[in-house]
Structure formats: C-alpha cells, structure tokens
Design a protein around this nucleic acid. Structure first.
Lengths: 216, 216
DNA sequence: AAAAAAATAGGCATAAGAGCCTAATTTTAT
DNA sequence: ATAAAATTAGGCTCTTATGCCTATTTTTTT
C-alpha cells in the first residue's frame, strides 16, 4: 500500500511527539512534517506535499480555522483533520464552512484518531460521535426551534468579542475597528442575546472556550 | 526491577491514550489508573496507590494545583509531576508552594517526560529547562526587587476575586459577604494593584489560571 | 510592644456601561 | 425577487464603575 503522508500542525511539542510515536505502529501512515504554528504550516506546505494535515485550532499566530481555509483554497486535494478541544457552535460552524474533512475532539480516544484518518483517507467526512450529536441538534433547532439554542456569532461579532475578551473596552474597540461606539455597543448587546449571556465575565469565559483568546 | 506505578490525571482522553501508548515502550513504567478530573483523582487514590501522579493543571472541577496540594497532604510519599501549558509566575509559585516534584511544559518533548519521570523516581526534583530560567529570574527579583513581582492575595481578596470572576458584581458581592459596597471596591482596587492588572477581563483570566473559577 | 498588613467603610467627581428602543444600508440566502 | 441577517448608528434614562483619596479597627507578624 502507498504510504499515506501526514503533516502535524500543533503547538505543543509533547503532543506532536506522542502522536508521532503512536502513528508509527500503523504501517501505512507516515508523518512527513511537523510545525508549531499556522504560518510555519503554510510555509512548509510549499515544499512538503502531504496527503493530510492534522491541525490544532488553538495555535498562536494564526487560528487553525484560518489556516484550514487557506489550505483548502490553495491545495484543495489536501485533506484537513481538525483536532481541537473546542466544541462550541461557532467552531463547528466555521469549521464546516472552511470545508475541513474531519473534526475530532481531544476528549476522543486514540482509536478515534485512527478511525478519523482512515475515514478521511477513504474520501469520506469524519466527525466525532460527541459532536455529531451537536450538529444534528444545531441543524434541528436551526429549522424548528430557533430561539432555544444560542445562535452562532457573525464574523464581526466574533471580532468584537475577541477584542473585548482581550481586555479592550467598547470605546477602544470602536477606535480599533473604525466604527462608532454605538455600533460596538449594539454588537455587544447582540452577542449577549445570541449567547444568552448576562454577565461580562461569562463573555470572557465564552471567548476562552471558543479559542478567541487564551488565559495565558 | 519493580514496576513504577503511575496514575494519569488529564481531562483529554486522547492525550491520556497517547501517553499510555508511549509509556508502554518503557519496560518498568506502568500506568495503573487514569482519571479525567480532580475529584475523580482524589477518589481513585483511595484505592489505587500509585508511586506517581502525572497531573494536568487545566482540569475542570478542581484545578490541578489544588489537587496537588491535597495529594501531597494526604499521601506525602506519592510523587506529583505537573504537566501544563502554563508558565506564568503565579503558576510556578503556586506549584512550588504545593511541593510538587516536577513541573513539565506541554511544549517540551516526549523524551523530557521520560526524563522527568526518571528524575523524580530517583528522588530528585524536575523542572523543564524552559522554566528553570524563569525560576531563577523569579528568585532573583524576589530577593532584590520585591516590587517587581506581583504580591500574593489575601484570603478575603481571593474570596472577592472568585465571586467576581464567577459573574457577581461588586454590589452582589457586598450582599453575599455582608460587607459594604465600599469595602468590596477597596478590595478590588487592592487586587488590581497587587496583580498589576488594569483590565477586568484580566481579572477573570487570572482567576481561571489560579483555579478560583473555571471556564465551564 | 511595635510595626505591618488586612479588613472595614466612606466621599466625591467623572466616566462608562446597561437596557431598551428605532432605523438605514449593505450583504447574504432563499 | 424577496426575505432575512448583518452592519452600521443614534437617542435616552438610569445604574454602575472608576480613580483617588482618607480613616478606623482588627489581625498577623516581627
């Protein structure tokens, strides 16, 4: 069988090492490169042409989803498996929009990782059982019970929330984005309604959970 | 050689699986248990008595550092290796105060994990090269430039910060703690000065990092 | 016993945010 | 083509927070 060439994009060296170790026991899989951030990834892809990229969302510099979009645009043949701890609706929605080939949670088992790789290698789409439920729910509620579920944030709303969670005040955000203070306030209000959030501290927590900012 | 019995406490199943896989190749090391949060860990330790616990800080429910303190108090013979992505002064300080036996970053390599386990097994203390520099720096500033380093919060200040990070407003906190609004404000002001924090969002992040509240 | 830190509380002026609207323009989806 | 959503912006009132002080009592440390 032809070796299936995989590139690892993940900022924690330990996790990269562990995945490499464990994939060695699968004969036809071959790790042909590894990078620690999104920019290095795009640079490496110019020379190394893997069949698949396993991509962590929570990387410094460029988010995994941004990187995924670029990869699927520049190298449509290359498969992308997102590996992430995040299971928020925003992440799911944006990952699906980026046309990734698989979405695996870090709370899944190693055998699920193998399963994901094999499924994608066969040309199919992989989602972990844990989030497939979420997608069904998301789709179901989108059609029938719009109000029950917190809606996905828009691009601009995510931008505003990200800045807010990184410590910018509404006033500072309006200066940054070159929009009026009223607009920022309107966005904040919409964000809170969409997420059913009352308190600002929960906005920060939501942003952390969603990977828009980090605690560090 | 006697097998060295290790328990894994880490909320991501994938990482647990990968560590287990990779440790299998080291003959005398044996993974005798695994848990996904701090409460399960303390429960499991009642029956399983491992020589070492490998402990992730960022777990839901109870922070790794709190868990570490309890372990070192209840089972002083049990070695604790902290495995974390955080390298802030607060984390280091709290980890050292909890008397853990090792502190390894997720950006270290797998060989460093082995090295850490072996070092601790021989009764010595392990810190990763990346953070040993930080500790030296921390010690240096503690002796000579006290003002540079953020001071520890008092019990009451931690109480106030915890409630704040959990979404309570200063007014609500004053009702909860049966003290006046002015007092809460005074505490908040002191907290910010001690931590050199300007923005409220950073207060939430600090509380999360310190384990006073969780993102979930 | 003396000193330092912690916990308590208040004043006062200014700045900022929250809640709750309306509404126009643009973009996207159906 | 039509509808829906997103993005923009403003008004108005009320509440809340902020910054920067002072000051007393209690607790802890030296």
């Amino acid at each position: 069988m032809m070796p299936y060439r995989i590139m690892l994009a993940e900022d924690h060296l330990l996790l990269r090492d562990l995945i490499k170790n464990s994939l060695k026991s699968v004969p036809h899989l071959q790790v042909v490169g590894e990078v620690g951030d999104g920019l290095d990834l795009l640079e490496s892809l110019k020379s190394v042409k893997p069949e698949m990229v396993i991509l962590d969302i929570g990387m410094p510099g460029m988010s995994g989803i941004e990187a995924a979009k670029k990869i699927k645009h520049d190298y449509p043949e290359t498969k992308v498996l997102l590996l992430t701890m995040y299971k928020s609706k925003e992440h799911l929605t944006h990952a699906l929009e980026a046309r990734v080939d698989g979405y695996l949670l870090k709370e899944n088992a190693f055998k699920d990782l193998i399963n994901a790789i094999e499924t994608i290698r066969e040309g199919r789409f992989y989602i972990s059982d844990i989030i497939s439920k979420k997608i069904v729910e998301l789709f179901f509620y989108k059609s029938h019970h719009e109000s029950q579920v917190s809606k996905a944030l828009s691009e601009r709303e995510i931008e505003v929330l990200t800045h807010y969670a990184q410590g910018k005040s509404p006033k500072e955000i309006s200066d940054l984005l070159l929009i009026s203070y009223s607009t920022v306030r309107n966005h904040m209000s919409k964000i809170k309604k969409k997420l059913s959030i009352k308190r600002n501290t929960d906005l920060v927590k939501h942003a952390i959970k969603s990977g828009y900012t980090s605690v560090g």
